[in-house]
Amino acid sequence: MTERLSPVPPRHILAAARRLERSGLVRRTPTEQSRPLSARLGADVYQKLEIFQPTGSFKPRGSANKILRLRDEEPDAFRRGFVAASAGNHGLGVSHAASALGARATLVVPRTVSPAKLEALWRYPVELIVSVGNYDVAEAEGRKLAKERGLVFISPYNDPDVIAGAGTVGLEVLEDLSEVDAILVPVGGGGLIAGIALWVKAVAPRVRIIGVQSDAYPAMQASLAAGQLVTAADKPSLADGLAGNIEAGSITFDLCRRFVDDVVLVTEEEIAEAIRYFVREEQLLVEGSGAVGAAALLAGKIDPGRLGTARPKIVDVVTGRNIAEARLRDIMAMPAAPAPPAD
C-alpha cells in the first residue's frame, strides 16, 4: 500500500541508499545503545547518531540524493545549479554535496541563523544570502530567486528526493536492530520523519513512529491536530533547525497524517536539560534540534510501558551537533530542571 499510494515509494529510498553509498558523500552512522537512558527508563534505548555526518547533521542524505540524481538523470538542471533556504544544517548539506560534485549553489538563510552554522557555511564556495526575515521569509526569497534565475530549488523537506534520502536513516536503523518498538524523530517541516516512516511502515509496520517538536514552534503537531496546515507563532527556540512553518501543499503533511503515529511537544527548558544530559552523561555535543527526542524521554513525555513489550526497544534519532559555543556555555550554566515525579 505504501508503494502504490505514496509520492515517495519505498523503492526510491532503497535507490537513495545505494546512490549515497556509491557517492561516499554521507556516512553510515552508528546506532548505539545509551546505557544511561536505558537504566533510567527501564527500556533498551538506542541512539542513531547522525551527529557524525560530515556536516554534523543528517541533512546531506537528502540534499546529496537530490543533486546526485539530477547529475545522473537531468544534467542540464545540474549544470544550471541550485538554490536552497535553510536555518543552517540543510544549507550545509547542500554546500557539502554541491562543492564535492562541482555544482553551483546559492543559499538563503534567515537573520536568526546560528552563528556556528553561519561560520561553517562561509567555508564553502557558495553564494550566501542572509535574509532580513525569519525562516519563512528566507524560504520565500529562495524560491523567488530560483524562479528568477532558472535554478533548481532544493527544499529542506518538501521534495521527494530529499525525503527519500532522509528515509535511509530508517533503513539503516532496521538493518542494525532486529527488533524495534518505537523510533523518535525530531520534526520541523517533516521531511526526515516522513522518509523514516515511509520505509519503516513498509518493512515493519508495527513499529511506532513518534515525532518530537518544541512547543515554541509546533507547526506539524498543530497541523495534525487540526487536520489541516496551520501557522505557528514565530518564537525563538533552542531547536532552531525545527523552526518554520510548513509551506502550502507540502507532501510531508499528508505523509505524516498517514504514517506517523504521534507527535509530542517538549519545552525549551526540557530541550536545554537534554543538551546538558548529552554533555554530562553521554559526552556528546548535540544541538537543540537533535536533542528533542532525549528531552521527551527525560521529561516523561513518552511512556515505555505503553509500547507493548516488557522491555521495549526505542531508537532516538539524534540529528545534529551544530551548536554555537556561546549558546552551549549559557545552557551548561543554567540550573538543571527538576526530574519528573516517579509513578
Results as ranks from 00 to 15, higher is better:
K235G: 07
R149F: 09
V207R: 00
L184D: 01
T319L: 09
E73M: 10
V230A: 07
A274Y: 02
G249N: 11
A84P: 02
A274W: 00
L284W: 01
L171C: 02
G211N: 01
V45Q: 04
N134L: 13
S38K: 10
N245K: 06
E139F: 07
L242Y: 06
G102C: 10
V137Y: 14
P36S: 12
I275G: 00
R28N: 14
L92I: 12
E175H: 04
V260W: 03
R123K: 15
S114A: 15
E139T: 07
L242M: 14
A336S: 15
Q221C: 09
A294F: 02
L118K: 08
G56Y: 02
G190S: 10
E247S: 12
L242Q: 09
G308H: 12
K144A: 15
I210H: 00
R258P: 05
D159M: 06
V318T: 04
F82V: 09
V185Q: 01
L5S: 14
T112A: 14
R143C: 06
A336R: 15
E127H: 15
A337F: 08
G305S: 14
A295Y: 05
T2L: 15
T231V: 15
L265Y: 04
P125Q: 13
S34V: 08
I154R: 03
E179D: 11
G42Y: 10
P312I: 06
G81A: 12
V169T: 10
G93E: 02
R80V: 14
V212D: 07
Y46E: 04
I314Q: 02
E247N: 11
A43W: 02
S63M: 14
V108D: 02
H90A: 08
E281G: 06
P304R: 06
K201V: 03
G244W: 03
R69L: 06
I163E: 01
P218E: 09
L128D: 13
A296L: 10
Q221W: 07
T2F: 12
R280I: 04
V230Y: 07
K66H: 15
Y135R: 05
W122H: 15
V317T: 02
T112L: 08
S178Y: 08
A272F: 11
V266C: 06
W199D: 01
Q33W: 09
P36R: 09
K66M: 11
V212T: 08
V260Y: 03
A17K: 01
Y217M: 10
G288D: 04
R11I: 03
G320M: 02
V260I: 13
G300Q: 04
V317P: 00
N322A: 07
